[in-house]
Measured scan of single mutants.
Amino acid sequence: EVPFKVVAQFPYKSDYEDDLNFEKDQEIIVTSVEDAEWYFGEYQDSNGDVIEGIFPKSFVAVQG
Rank of each mutant, 00 (worst) to 15 (best):
P3Q: 04
K5N: 06
Q63W: 12
F40T: 05
E52V: 13
F4D: 00
D18F: 14
D19Y: 14
G41S: 02
N21G: 05
E17H: 11
Q44R: 13
F59T: 08
E27I: 15
A8V: 02
S46N: 09
E23T: 06
E17K: 13
E27L: 12
E1P: 11
T31V: 07
Q9Y: 07
K13V: 10
D18L: 14
G48K: 04
K57T: 07
F10P: 00
S14F: 02
Y39R: 01
G41E: 00
I54D: 02
E37R: 07
Y39G: 01
L20Q: 02
G48A: 03
G53V: 04
N21Q: 10
F10I: 09
A8D: 00
S14D: 00
Y12N: 03
Y43C: 06
F59H: 14
D19E: 14
V30W: 02
D35P: 05
I51Q: 14
S46Y: 09
K57I: 09
W38P: 00
P3Y: 07
E52Y: 14
D15Q: 12
Q26D: 02
L20K: 01
Q26L: 02
Q9V: 15
A36W: 08
N47M: 08
F59Y: 13
Q9F: 08
E17V: 13
A8Q: 01
G64H: 11
I29S: 07
V2D: 03
K13D: 05
V60Q: 02
D49T: 12
N21Y: 11
P11S: 13
E34T: 13
N47A: 08
S32V: 07
F4Q: 00
Q44T: 14
D25G: 15
I29H: 04
P11T: 13
V60N: 00
Y39W: 14
E34G: 10
G41P: 02
V2H: 05
Q9S: 09
I54M: 14
S14N: 03
E34V: 15
W38E: 01
Q26K: 03
G53W: 04
Y16L: 11
K57L: 06
V33G: 03
T31N: 05
S58E: 08
V6G: 01
V62F: 13
E17A: 13
Y43S: 01
F59A: 11
N47L: 07
I54P: 05
Y16D: 12
D25V: 03
P3V: 05
I28H: 01
Y16G: 14
F10M: 12
F4M: 03
G53E: 00
S32K: 14
L20F: 09
E52K: 15
F59D: 02
E27V: 15
Y16V: 13
I51H: 15
K13R: 12
V50S: 06
E34I: 15
L20H: 01
D19M: 14
F59K: 09
I54T: 14
S46M: 11
Y39Q: 01
A61D: 10
P3H: 05
A8S: 08
E23H: 06
F10Y: 12
E17R: 11
E23L: 07
E37H: 12
Q44M: 14
D18G: 15
I51C: 13
D49S: 11
G48Y: 03
L20N: 00
D45K: 10
F55R: 00
V6Y: 02
D49M: 13
I51N: 10
E1D: 11
E42C: 15
S46C: 12
W38I: 05
E23A: 08
E52T: 15
I51V: 13
A36C: 13
F10N: 06
I29V: 11
E17L: 11
F40P: 00
E42R: 14
S46I: 12
A61S: 13
F22A: 00
Y16E: 12
P3C: 10
Q26T: 06
P11Q: 09
E34P: 15
G48W: 03
S46V: 12
W38Y: 12
V60L: 02
D45C: 10
K57M: 10
F55M: 00
P3A: 04
V33I: 14
K5P: 04
A61G: 07
G41H: 02
Y43P: 00
N21M: 07
Y12S: 00
Y39V: 03
S32P: 01
E52I: 10
F10H: 13
Q9T: 10
N21S: 11
V7H: 05
Q9E: 05
P56H: 06
G64K: 10
Y39T: 00
D18M: 14
F4S: 00
V6S: 00
D19R: 15
S58D: 09
K5T: 12
Q63H: 10
S58T: 08
I28W: 04
Q63F: 13
D25E: 07
I28F: 03
Q63I: 15
S58I: 10
D35I: 07
G53I: 04
L20D: 02
E23D: 11
Y43G: 01
V62N: 09
P56F: 05
G41T: 03
E1I: 13
D45E: 06
E42L: 10
S32C: 15
V60R: 00
N21A: 08
V50I: 14
I51G: 01
D49E: 10
D35G: 13
Y39I: 00
L20S: 01
A61F: 11
S14G: 08
D15R: 11
F10C: 15
I28P: 01
Q26F: 04
W38R: 10
V30F: 03
F40H: 10
F4V: 00
A8E: 03
G48C: 07
V62R: 12
V7N: 04
G53N: 03
Y16T: 11
